[in-house]
């Protein structure tokens, strides 16, 4: 009667369930999806100096793309996990014969899909409304950079996914909303996702380089435009990813659902 179940089967089942939930609640996708695009339309499009310059436009896309994905992870996963934790269905899932692995990985895959969807309208808007495509049509940059950069946005945003999970596992859903907001905008600012870090004073640039937001921005700009990234980018990104993932795994293990005092 004991049937051996491939460890992949629960992972596929959890991913499938979460993706079904996502696509059957379209409003949740729409709100995270249009945010970077709106930011582009309101703040970047009026600045002709940027939109007339193909490479500058691409850098803006990279920044906003990272900002969108970071927000999606921090909010979607920070608040989503905190709410899910208080949900008795999650308590039921914890009685099934699986560890934290399938749920956590399924959440990552679903987040990646949701973030990818948020990039599509942004890429479309930039392609239609700026001179960015000329960088590729003129042969200055290879077309292959576009899928490469898209993949890189998702990979570079991993620390924010882990950060979202930490928030979700360590805090109640109300506290998670506040903490996600407190983290998101300062991180976006210091990380150069709103203003280019070239405008920062020296000390702020040093702080900026140590943040995961800046590292994610620089690596995506490098992927898209070939602009050299600082030597600190990879170690900073890797360090934050490892540290926050370890914290997220620890938080998941100590989690016993919502506790009241």
């Amino acid at each position: 009667m004991t049937v051996t179940v491939s460890p992949l089967t629960p992972l596929v089942a959890h991913t499938r369930a979460q993706v079904l939930d996502l696509i059957r609640t379209p409003i949740a996708i729409i709100s995270t999806t249009i945010f970077p695009t709106l930011a582009f339309l309101f703040f970047v499009l009026p600045q002709g100096a940027i939109t007339d310059n193909a490479v500058a436009s691409l850098s803006v896309v990279a920044q906003l793309g990272v900002f969108g994905v970071m927000s999606a992870y921090l909010f979607g996963y920070g608040i989503g996990v905190a709410e899910e934790r208080a949900n008795p269905w999650t308590t039921y899932l914890r009685t099934l014969p699986i560890g934290p692995f399938p749920m956590t990985v399924a959440r990552f895959l679903t987040a990646a899909l949701a973030s990818f969807l948020s990039l599509l309208p942004l890429v479309l808007a930039v392609a239609l409304l700026t001179k960015a495509p000329e960088a590729f049509t003129s042969g200055e940059l290879s077309w292959a950079r576009i899928p490469f950069a898209l993949a890189m946005v998702l990979i570079a945003a991993t620390p924010f996914l882990a950060m979202g999970l930490c928030i979700g596992y360590l805090l109640s859903s109300k506290a998670a909303v506040a903490v996600a907001q407190v983290l998101n905008f300062p991180l976006a600012f210091i990380g150069g996702l709103m203003l280019p870090p070239e405008m920062f004073p020296g000390w702020l640039d040093v702080v900026s380089l140590a943040t995961p937001a800046r590292a994610a921005r620089d690596i995506v700009i490098w992927a898209l435009t070939g602009e050299q990234m600082p030597g600190s980018t990879l170690p900073v990104l890797l360090g934050w990813t490892v540290a926050l993932t370890a914290l997220a795994v620890w938080a998941n293990r100590r989690d016993e659902g919502r506790r009241f005092r």
């Binding site: 179940v5 089967t9 629960p10 369930a17 079904l20 008795p88 699986i98």
Partner: peptide, 28 residues
């Protein structure tokens, strides 16, 4: 082990057939 918790909470967007299959995937 099979468990029914005290609180009833099902994923509202999933169909009954999908919930059965989802739980079944953990046990073959």
């Amino acid at each position: 082990l099979g468990v029914t918790p005290q609180a009833t909470a099902l994923p509202v967007t999933l169909r009954v057939r999908e919930v059965f299959a989802f739980v079944g995937a953990h046990f073959g």
